[in-house]
Design a protein around this nucleic acid. Structure first.
Lengths: 197, 197, 197, 197
DNA sequence: CATGAATGAGATTTCATTCAT
DNA sequence: TATGAATGAAATCTCATTCAT
């Protein structure tokens, strides 16, 4: 094997390990919060030794911040792409909603919820959310919503306000695991009625 | 001072202290979660020494459990009394909603939310919520809602399901502090529309 | 009531209280050792408030030391008086043995045992026992024992050594509560045989 | 190093550490009792950090209970093996006595004494001693003693009673450190006379 | 790179002592 | 004098992080 390939292989292992740790941390932080998650739990969830975390992240804090930042970036990216989805404004936002409700996202959303609302997170995370409030995330959706209002697909009213509530509600539904057992998540089209009616 | 008065006075001091500690703990647990709240913070918030907490509660865990149980009891009691409020079913549930949205309740609701959803709480708290699910709490409201449906005040549909979503949404709105700054909580009557359609 | 009597009365109350505390402390220290006894237990045993102990003793340590010193003094006094008891040397030591085996002494003996053997006692107590070793206590008995040897009542052998073992054994029997249930303490005359052979 | 060896090596380290902690704890508990022994002392005696104790034992209490149980088991085992020692009943019990008087056992005996007599020990330890009283330990020796009585090696009398006293006395002598300085422990053969005479 | 034993700073809890009443 | 609520120093215990292997 050439030295180059050797290096590539190592890099790949590193990337995989890093991802593995992040996934485990995401799950644990989502379920137990920042202080409630012990590094030993993350290691166990990731099936690695406790010490190994520190070869990929300088500290529990850095791991948490990294997660929040990356999830934030993903969310931002997802929202910015809505305008490029096919279909009418209604169909674009409907697709976005479906994507968000995907259960693979559940831990990500729970983590973000907690990170934003809880006071027991690193200073820097608080700052991230101060700088980038929910409303900033909503920003790229506003013109789309307005277009839908003009075409009559959406009900009239202050766009930012309506969208803010809409995402708040989706968020809260996502993190209400308990509901699943009885009724599951509400149908997408029921939710869309919040915007149309 | 007579011995009787002396004893009464001591009892009163104990009651006040206990209440003081519970209030401080409620606030801290609500904002920072169970593991994120250090006993030193509770003591500081209550302006007492750390040791004193332990003359009133055997442990941080017991303090937390006590809070959850008492809040649960209050909630149950509040919901059971709705039927005895004056007015039509619509007015009764409207009054309940106003009571819930009262900002004095904010910490109580946040604490309950976290206690129910987080995995970093004492075993016993998990059990409390397993035994008494949200649906049990909703139970006493159902007949009232049905009466409202019959009189045409409320929209048709499966009562338990509609009410479950209704309270989920109220819950989530209450715990979204961030919104306050921009738009505050939605008006009661806007929320009631979820039930009336 | 005259001022003098008033004063006397107060003094008497003080003495009684002090005695009450000492008795309670003796029992607790005997059963649970120095560090194992909490001042709150002593207070409870004496049926007084926790704070009151400190109006009679400056500290738990002082209370303990006082007890040890007084018990030591009593023991010394008891042993010094043996020579003035009526009867032959055998009868004198027999009477002493009966007095020691009195069950009212059990706590006193247990306390002394622990105070002497345990390392978790105040420095000063250790010093007391260094200064006044068991052998010093035995000293006044030696001439009596020797007289008994000369008269043939006791078996020959080095007096200090024989007496040292004798008291060690009595001590140990006294503190073996468990035995009571099955066989009680050995009969005085059985014990005396250790000396007579 | 092969993975197998690596695992063996780690196991060995764990065993050694555990033993090291138990030895240190044994010494401290023996000298200072349960409450009188601080975990910091155990750590210092074992030359490890305080925290490490808790990777091997869940609590100071568990450490203490473990020690008592294991010592109890050893004692039981030792006593049960007496019948298989070579020689006559007299020689068997003589060998047992020598083994007990071994100064390596001193801490073990002191710890057991304290654990049995003191009231400041964990509940569970009290239960252990309730379940397995001294007499139960003596049980396997009784037939041996009876055989010795029949052969005339031992003096007549109720075996359980005589043996109970015998071990009580040996116990007490073992824990009388003070004696060492002056006369040391009595000779085995002197002690055996308690049984023969 | 990977492990997990070990550390030590910090959290929870206890309890001798003080102090307002 | 007597009480018991309150304190704070010290004990027990936890866990993020380091380090020898």
């Amino acid at each position: 094997m050439s030295p180059l390939n050797r290096q590539q292989q190592l890099d790949q292992i590193r990337d995989e390990r890093r991802e593995q740790i992040k996934q485990a941390a995401l799950k644990m932080f989502a379920c137990r919060g920042y202080t409630g998650t012990k590094t030993s739990m993350i290691a166990k969830e990731a099936s690695i030794s406790e010490g190994l975390i520190y070869r990929y992240f300088n500290s529990k804090e850095e791991l948490f911040i990294t997660l929040v930042q990356e999830l934030m970036e993903e969310a931002r990216s997802e929202l910015e792409n809505v305008g490029f989805l096919p279909g009418t404004p209604f169909e674009q936002i409907r697709t976005l909603t479906i994507n968000i409700l995907d259960e693979d996202n559940i831990h990500a959303f729970m983590l973000m919820e907690r990170a934003r609302k809880a006071d027991d997170v690193p200073e820097k995370v608080t700052q991230i959310f101060e700088g980038v409030s929910t409303n900033v995330l909503i920003e790229p959706i506003i013109p789309i919503f307005v277009k839908g209002q003009q075409s009559g697909e959406f009900s009239p009213g202050e766009p930012r306000r309506i969208l803010s509530w809409y995402f708040t509600i989706i968020n809260s539904l996502l993190t209400q695991e308990e509901m699943d057992e009885e009724y599951g998540l509400p149908d997408v089209d029921v939710l869309m009625r919040i915007l149309t009616k």
